[in-house]
Computed example of a mutant assay.
Amino acid sequence: MTDARTTDRTKAPMGLGCAPIGDLYGPVDPATAVATVVAAVEAEAALLDTAPKYGDGLSERRVGQALAATGRRTFRLSTKVGWAIGEGRPPRPAFGADDVRRGLEDSMRRLGVDHIDVVHVHDPDDHLDEAVTRTVPALVRLRDEGVIGAVGAGMNSNRLLHELVRRTDLDCVLIAGRYTLLEQPALADLLPLCAQRGVEVIAAGVYNSGLLADPRPGAPYNYRPVPDDVLARALRIKEICERHSVPLRAAAVQFPLAHPAVTTVLVGAATPEEVADNLRLARLPLPALLWEELREAGLLDPLAPLP
């Protein structure tokens, strides 16, 4: 099935998620990790996103090595606060104002920079009140001082991110896995509030932990083996994509950008080849009939904007 109407993604605002180069999913050769970030910079990625929790600081150090080789250029750089690392212990909560300054200083040292464009509160699921009363206000002060450019929050929960947007002065949010081709719960609460308040949305986890990259029994979904009903939904989406000769991953990358509140899609990579492939998928023209058929099949929220 073909359709002359297609979406033009030649300038798709793609970002590089740097968790994989922190050995989060398995060891990555150090030179390959740095080359991955360099490839994203050379390809004019819109955003490089890292965090201290990714490999106990390893991701930040590798990003820093790449930045030393490439310079800052036009992309934005983001990292996160809220968890203390080091000393051979698992990450531990660190959401106080002093923790924020100390953690950010450590991040800037690992990254080799004196200014960070975006700093997110990282996964404050069980520390929401502390994030509201301590972490975000500390970041707002750093924003006012010019140390950072913007204040954000990154989570898997659209409900809790909605609370943070409602109760604090955020510039942006990073929502992982809750506004994707597979499911769109953030459409009901988070995205409308962000659009109303002018809060930028960065869509991450667009493959739902890997399910939409390769839907099969046992594939990861929310970091666990996929339930049968969710797998069946993913396979139906894949079937419709195949009827339109569209790679499932291309549809997954492009779908979130249709919402006016979403400014960037963040996709992880561990090799330069993966960076190139992600950018290719993001810029692939896709037929408008694909999205219409997915909606007619009940696989997209009726209110979700279509690319």
Score class of each variant (00 low, 15 high):
62 R>T: 01
210 G>P: 01
230 V>R: 06
51 A>W: 12
242 E>I: 14
155 M>C: 08
49 D>N: 07
178 R>T: 12
246 V>H: 02
137 P>T: 13
181 L>G: 13
244 H>P: 10
92 R>P: 04
173 V>A: 03
276 A>M: 11
90 P>S: 11
214 D>S: 15
70 T>N: 01
81 V>W: 00
141 R>H: 08
218 G>I: 15
183 E>H: 11
186 A>M: 06
33 A>L: 12
302 P>I: 11
265 V>G: 06
260 P>L: 11
285 P>N: 09
73 R>N: 07
186 A>T: 13
204 A>E: 12
286 L>G: 08
229 D>G: 01
37 V>T: 00
22 G>A: 09
110 R>F: 12
210 G>M: 02
69 A>N: 00
167 R>S: 14
105 E>F: 00
263 T>P: 00
147 V>H: 03
271 T>V: 07
282 A>N: 09
269 A>F: 12
182 L>Q: 07
111 L>Q: 02
191 L>N: 09
214 D>W: 04
297 A>W: 05
170 L>Y: 07
28 V>L: 07
178 R>E: 15
261 A>P: 01
271 T>A: 02
143 R>Y: 02
39 A>P: 03
290 L>H: 06
298 G>E: 07
182 L>S: 05
234 A>D: 08
21 I>T: 02
77 L>Y: 07
5 R>V: 15
83 W>D: 09
116 I>F: 06
304 A>W: 05
113 V>L: 11
174 L>G: 03
168 T>Y: 03
263 T>D: 04
302 P>V: 13
209 S>V: 12
289 L>G: 15
293 E>P: 04
31 A>H: 10
206 V>Y: 02
38 V>I: 14
169 D>L: 02
112 G>A: 08
234 A>M: 10
196 Q>N: 11
148 I>K: 02
81 V>Q: 02
218 G>A: 13
53 K>D: 10
112 G>C: 04
209 S>K: 11
219 A>V: 08
227 P>A: 05
215 P>C: 10
174 L>K: 03
176 A>S: 15
147 V>K: 11
211 L>C: 08
238 K>F: 03
37 V>E: 00
284 L>R: 13
196 Q>R: 14
215 P>V: 15
30 P>V: 15
175 I>G: 03
3 D>E: 08
77 L>F: 10
86 G>C: 07
244 H>T: 14
304 A>F: 09
217 P>D: 02
188 A>G: 12
220 P>M: 09
104 L>T: 13
260 P>G: 10
108 M>R: 06
254 Q>M: 04
296 E>H: 07
85 I>C: 07
20 P>L: 10
136 V>N: 06
22 G>K: 08
151 V>Y: 04
37 V>M: 00
59 S>K: 06
290 L>S: 10
60 E>N: 07
289 L>N: 14
303 L>S: 15
66 A>R: 00
248 L>I: 12
104 L>P: 05
79 T>W: 03
269 A>K: 12
123 D>Q: 12
149 G>I: 05
232 A>S: 09
259 H>N: 09
267 V>I: 15
209 S>Q: 07
120 H>C: 07
192 P>C: 06
181 L>C: 13
75 F>R: 03
110 R>G: 06
134 R>Y: 03
163 E>D: 13
223 Y>I: 10
248 L>G: 05
249 R>S: 15
177 G>K: 10
203 A>L: 09
93 P>N: 14
26 G>L: 08
242 E>T: 15
67 L>C: 09
152 G>L: 01
186 A>P: 13
